[in-house]
């Protein structure tokens, strides 16, 4: 149907152009036609060489840059998330390590205090023992001194008594043996 329509158009066009020619209307100028064909060819060549490629290049470069930028942003996001993850891990690790350390040091402190207390206890016992020993020694010495003093007092008393009744010299040996016994 379409082809028939065009056939009709071409058949009608010929008498139409003939009628136009009779009216003096110049439909077509061959020189102009050729000139415009050459002009058109030059223009197409110019556009193909100097307009299309650089402009297309710019567009494609920009598309690539935008894609790269978006990819970089995506990567940045990913890296940020990773960093957050790492941060959280490190933080919890540090926290647990810190609490471990606190517990550890507390334990150690307790141990040191215990040891110190034990030592102090020992020292106390030692000092008390020493004191006891000193005290015992002192008591013995004092005892002896008192015995000696008492002995000599008894003797001096006995001497005074005896001086009146007996000669000291004759009973010296008895006194000495008594002294010794004391």
């Amino acid at each position: 149907m379409k082809r028939l329509y065009w056939l009709l158009a071409v058949v009608l066009l010929l008498p139409a152009s003939a009628m136009a020619a009779e009216g003096g209307l110049k439909l077509l100028s061959f020189t102009t036609l050729i000139g415009e064909i050459i002009t058109f060819a030059i223009l197409v060549w110019v556009v193909m060489k100097y307009v299309w490629p650089p402009l297309m290049n710019a567009i494609e470069n920009r598309q690539k840059e935008i894609a790269d930028g978006l990819a970089a942003a995506e990567r940045g996001h990913q890296e940020l998330a990773d960093a957050d993850q790492t941060k959280a891990t490190i933080l919890s690790e540090a926290r647990s390590k810190g609490s471990d350390m606190v517990a550890d040091s507390k334990q150690r402190g307790d141990a040191i205090i215990d040891a110190a207390r034990q030592e102090a206890e020992n020292e106390k016992a030692r000092i008390i023992e020493q004191g006891q020993r000193d005290l015992d020694a002192e008591r013995v010495a004092m005892h002896r001194a008192m015995e000696e003093k008492l002995g000599s007092l008894i003797i001096s008393g006995a001497e005074q008594i005896l001086r009146r009744e007996v000669d000291t010299k004759t009973h010296q040996d008895i006194i000495d043996s008594m002294k010794k016994a004391v």
């Binding site: 439909l27 077509l28 100028s29 102009t32 415009e36 223009l43």
Partner: peptide, 28 residues
């Protein structure tokens, strides 16, 4: 005579060239 001619349509040529120069120079 006739609907075809060899005479150059100078106005067509000049206007089309001027506009082509303007438009495509800008594009380039």
């Amino acid at each position: 005579d006739g609907s075809f001619t060899w005479a150059l349509h100078l106005d067509t040529l000049l206007v089309s060239w001027a506009l082509a120069a303007l438009g495509f120079y800008t594009l380039i």
